[in-house]
Design a protein around this nucleic acid. Structure first.
Lengths: 155, 155
DNA sequence: ATGTGTGCAAATAATTTGCATTGAC
DNA sequence: GTCAATGCAAATTATTTGCACACAT
């Protein structure tokens, strides 16, 4: 069991072109077993229990490698800084995973409509924020499809 | 014209319980006239053209006041730090605008299905990230509806 | 006059980088 | 042996805070 997991990790690394290191393995294990949506600090704290000498920088570097390789994703795309929404009308966002530009899009164009007001578990819905992730025209031309990487994407 | 805009700003401030100051007015004007999804630095740069002595801290403070009052929104909720998505299955997020917790939700429960593969403008869709913004059960009990503020929400 | 708002500088948080050393292949 | 990975400390970026002074009400 533990052996097959280690094997699985070897394959994951091989596909991503990453060396199989102990720290990387433990970070991967932590990510696989942790509940919720851990922050780098949370991952660091958990890994540190098993490898007290681990550095936070190593955790960051590996998280980015995992994300860039499509092994894990980010919960939401970071734009580096806060962005203010100045468009008051109801709309969703078109988000280019290459150049990170944000464009507004009319919900009608997406064919999305359902807007529940209450969900199981007693969660009261205020509104839906929808990000359409993909590649904008400019980036398609700049980066041929064959070269297109799995984006460090939302979700 | 300019007068009615200033009047509108007065009303906005009155409703939010904010004093009408010159810096606040200019920040508001910039937000109303700027294209796209400006960062605090961008807003700062533009305001600085009109008020060279403005401080970045003032811009930040006012952006937060505007957002907390529901006058503007944020493009996406900041969790303070990056979050790793460890759930590999297709799902959306339930995001409490009070306590900021993230829970996964099955797309079926939302009744959302449409997933276009290409959009006008040549944008190639990879996937949809949907955040359902609202108040979780715990926060509803903690904060009676009457007290509920307009959340500093996504979009 | 009273209290909120502003500007400045320092503080904090999150993340990144440079570099010497270590370890994987 | 060679190059990628690690650890550490310093650097950066984004944002927040404390406080004295200025301004709105």
């Amino acid at each position: 069991m533990a052996h097959s997991e280690a094997n699985q990790f070897r394959k994951v690394c091989e596909q991503a072109g990453l060396a199989v290191t102990h720290q990387r393995q433990v970070i991967y294990d932590v990510l696989c077993s942790v509940e919720g949506h851990p922050s780098p600090e949370e991952v660091y704290a958990r890994v540190k229990r098993r490898i007290p000498s681990i550095s936070l920088a190593t955790v960051y570097k590996n998280l980015h490698l995992f994300i860039d390789s499509g092994i894990f994703k980010q919960v939401s795309l970071h734009h580096g800084s806060m962005r203010v929404e100045t468009n008051h009308s109801r709309h969703y966002h078109l988000l280019c995973t290459h150049c990170k530009t944000i464009h507004d899009i009319d919900p009608e164009l997406l064919g999305l409509s359902a807007t529940p007001t209450e969900l199981p578990g007693g969660f009261v819905v205020e509104r839906l924020a929808v990000d359409v992730l993909g590649i904008c025209k400019d980036c398609q031309q700049a980066t041929p499809v064959s070269v297109t990487r799995q984006p460090a994407a939302i979700q």
